[in-house]
């Protein structure tokens, strides 16, 4: 019987091309910038709670907003959702978010305690 295909688990050999090298360097730069930015966001979140500069009523939605930014950055930069060929993954994730929002909102608000 004929040999069927090559072993996909075999380690890669040889040097990457110039194009790949440039791409990798660019990706490294983006990731470093995002990483720094995310540490900056975390610091702000920490400071806004640790110091009493911001009233609690504002601080909670504020750090939730920062958390949302971090999640999006995490997904797009570090989990490579921004790369080509991820259209379906993007569509599915955002559909899930879109469906989760009314779910969470109703479980918080529409429990019959307060009438709307």
């Amino acid at each position: 019987m004929a040999q069927h295909g090559i072993d996909p688990t075999a380690p890669l050999t040889g040097e990457p091309t110039k194009k790949t090298k440039r791409k990798l360097a660019k990706e490294l730069r983006t990731q470093l910038i995002s990483f720094t930015f995310m540490i900056f966001l975390t610091t702000i979140a920490f400071i806004s709670i640790a110091s009493d500069a911001i009233p609690t009523g504002f601080a909670i939605p504020f750090i939730l907003l920062l958390a949302c930014i971090q999640v999006v950055l995490q997904l797009y930069v570090f989990m490579h959702l921004n790369e080509r060929g991820n259209g379906w993954q993007n569509a599915m994730i955002w559909t899930g978010v879109l469906i989760a929002i009314p779910t969470v909102a109703s479980l918080m608000l529409l429990l019959g305690i307060v009438k709307f």
Binding site: T103, S106, L107, L110, L111, G112, I113
Partner: peptide, 11 residues
């Protein structure tokens, strides 16, 4: 709260 079940079930 019993309404939690109704929401989860109907979602």
């Amino acid at each position: 709260n019993v309404v939690i079940w109704q929401h989860l079930f109907w979602i």
